[in-house]
Structures are given as C-alpha cells and as structure tokens.
Simulated scan of single mutants.
Amino acid sequence: MPAAKAPAETAAIMWKPILVRALIAVIFGLTTVFLQEPGLGVLKYGLAAYFVFSGSGLWEYLRRDPVPERMRGPLSIAAAVLMLGAIALLFAGSVFVAGIIAAAALIGSGAAELVAWAQHRKAFVPARDQLYTGLVGALSGVGLLLFLNLDAHGLLGIVGGGAIVIAVVLAISGFGFRHDAGPAARAGEGPRAPRS
C-alpha cells in the first residue's frame, strides 16, 4: 500500500492492472475456502491455474509505461517463476511433491518481487506494493514447506490465505490509485496502452 500519493498520470495507468491482480487473488483465495475435500488433481490444477493467472496479471502490470525499465527484470522473473511452477505442477505425482513445487514457485516469485521493491520503492510509488505481495507470497511458500505433511485441503488453505491477504492489499492500493488519478480514471482518460 503506497504511503505517498502517486502522480495522477501514473495512477491513471496503474490502478487497473493492480485491481486485476487483486481480483485474481481473491477469486482463488475464496475458492479454497469452499473446497471441502480436494484431492491431488484439484490441488495441482488449482494451484497451476492460480500461478498462470497471477503470472499473467503481473506481466500485464510490468508492461505499463510508468514501470521503470530496471524494475521489469525482477518482475519478469517473478512472472516466469510462477509460469514454470504451473507447468511443473501438472506433473506432480503426489500432494507432497505438489507442495514442494508450489513452495518453490511462491518463494522464488516472492523474492523477485522483494528485489523490485527494494530497488524501486523510492522512485516508483506503486513498487511499494511489492513489499507486501512479495513477502506474503514468500511466507506462503515457507508455510507450505513447514506443513508438507498436510493434505491437499490444508496446503490449498495456506496458499489461499496468502492470496486473500494479497487481494486486500492490492485492492486498497488499486482503489487508492484510482482516487489519486482523479477525473482521468473516472473518465477512462489518460494513456493506458502497455508498452510492448
């Protein structure tokens, strides 16, 4: 959550991709709450889907013009780690292996987001979100490693709980940036096209 107000031009471009990431996280997090007895298939395909959508959302975020060039490197690594984790999960033959793969993906992507935060938090206000998303993601991965003896429901609960925290943080941030953008956000004005 940004402690300082972002420039209106930056806020007008960044609030939507931030809220998209929040939406992805809250959908996954709430889904895990309602799953009663998920098996290995639900665990690995559910986590894989979450990683794919999260990686895609992060990719769309980092491609926006205001994101500093040097910040795109660590964020690209975070997105790539999630995508690789999603692919590896498809081949997991047990809940234990799926937990290890998911933990590695979450810790790796979280660490990359923390690098982005550490390097750019002063110059780019939205980068301050990476402290929370990176930390919660990495801690979720550590939680998986600490409780690998849990069943699929327990492992999904750990990741889903982290996802809900991330969703809340990003929702606060995204709506805050929408407010900072002022009329440009409400009218849909301002440059929004991502850099390719």
Rank of each mutant, 00 (worst) to 15 (best):
M1Y: 08
P2H: 08
A4L: 07
A8W: 11
A11I: 02
I13H: 07
I13W: 02
K16N: 07
P17Q: 02
I18L: 14
L19S: 05
L19P: 06
I24Q: 07
V26M: 12
V26W: 11
V26S: 15
I27Y: 08
F28L: 07
L30S: 10
F34M: 10
F34V: 13
L35K: 08
P38F: 07
P38N: 06
L40G: 06
L40W: 04
V42Y: 03
L43N: 05
L43Y: 06
A48M: 03
A49E: 02
A49N: 05
F53K: 01
S54N: 05
S56P: 06
V67W: 00
P68L: 02
P68D: 00
E69L: 14
R70S: 11
M71Q: 09
G73E: 15
L75D: 06
A80M: 08
F91D: 11
A98D: 02
G99Y: 02
I107E: 03
G108M: 00
G108N: 00
S109Y: 00
L114R: 13
A116Q: 05
W117Q: 11
K122I: 07
A123D: 13
Y132P: 02
G141Q: 03
G141R: 01
G141A: 05
G143P: 13
L145M: 07
L148H: 08
L150K: 10
L150S: 10
L150M: 11
A152W: 12
L155W: 09
L156F: 10
L156C: 09
I158Y: 02
V159E: 04
V159I: 13
I164W: 03
I166R: 01
A167K: 10
V168A: 15
V168F: 14
V169A: 15
L170S: 12
G176V: 06
G176K: 05
F177G: 04
H179C: 01
D180W: 12
G182K: 10
G182C: 09
R186F: 14
R186V: 11
G188S: 04
E189Y: 12
A193T: 14
P194A: 05
P194S: 04
S196N: 06
